[in-house]
Each structure stands twice: as C-alpha cells, then as structure tokens.
C-alpha cells in the first residue's frame, strides 16, 4: 500500500470516527421522554461542557490566563457585544503575558 493511500484511508477513518461522535448524540436520546432530573441534566449540559473545555486554559495555564479570564467574565456580565468581550479578553492576555 502506498503512503498516499494509507494517508487518505487514515483521514477517512478519522472522519468516520468523528461523524459517529457527532450523530451519536441524536440516537442516544431517541424515544426518551425528557422531564424531571433528565431535563435538569440536559439543561445543565451545555454550560458544564463549555466550562470543561476552557477550564485547563483558565485555571491551569498561568496567572496571565486566569486573570484575563476573570476580566473577560466581568466584560461578559456587563452584556457587552461578544466581539468586544473577545477583544478585551485577547488584549488582557497579551498585556498580562508581557508583564515581567
């Protein structure tokens, strides 16, 4: 098998594995009535997963990232437009990383 073919097969395998995770969620919940505790769980899921995605950056990278995250959160709670919140966060992290 040529290297090129193996590369394309591996890419196809990655694509298939990823699509299975993407459509799996549709089938996971089929025919389940979503009420009570299950509804509470699903309602909490988006925020819990989003928080988990960024937690290592926010809590376990360095003081600059943690402080910049706090500044970003303050901007977000002021209900500024999202692009302003992102700009403030990026500016904060650049400034804090530049500190000695």
């Amino acid at each position: 098998m040529s290297d090129d073919l193996l590369t394309v097969i591996t890419i196809a395998g990655m694509a298939l594995a990823t699509y299975l995770t993407r459509i799996g969620g549709l089938y996971l919940m089929r025919g389940v009535s979503v009420t009570g505790r299950l509804k509470a769980a699903l309602d909490a899921l988006p925020a819990a997963v989003l928080m988990a995605v960024i937690a290592p950056t926010v809590l376990a990278t360095g003081a600059a990232e943690t402080i910049a995250a706090a500044i970003t959160a303050a901007a977000a709670f002021l209900r500024l437009p999202m692009i302003a919140v992102v700009a403030i966060g990026v500016a904060a992290v650049v400034a804090l990383r530049a500190l000695p």
């Binding site: 395998g13 990823t18 993407r22 919940m29 899921l45």
Partner: peptide
C-alpha cells in the same frame, strides 16, 4: 492508523454529549 483513529474518537467523544443536547 488505528491509534490515530481511536485517539480521534476519544478526543471527540464530547460531541456525544453536545449532540444529545442539541438534538432537542
């Protein structure tokens, strides 16, 4: 190949949770 495909699946397992919520 196999290691990369399996690792890809594991990195993307979060999609299962996200899809379960989004499908509603």
């Amino acid at each position: 190949m196999l290691l990369i495909v399996v690792t890809t699946f594991i990195v993307n397992v979060r999609h299962l949770l996200m899809g379960a919520s989004l499908q509603r």
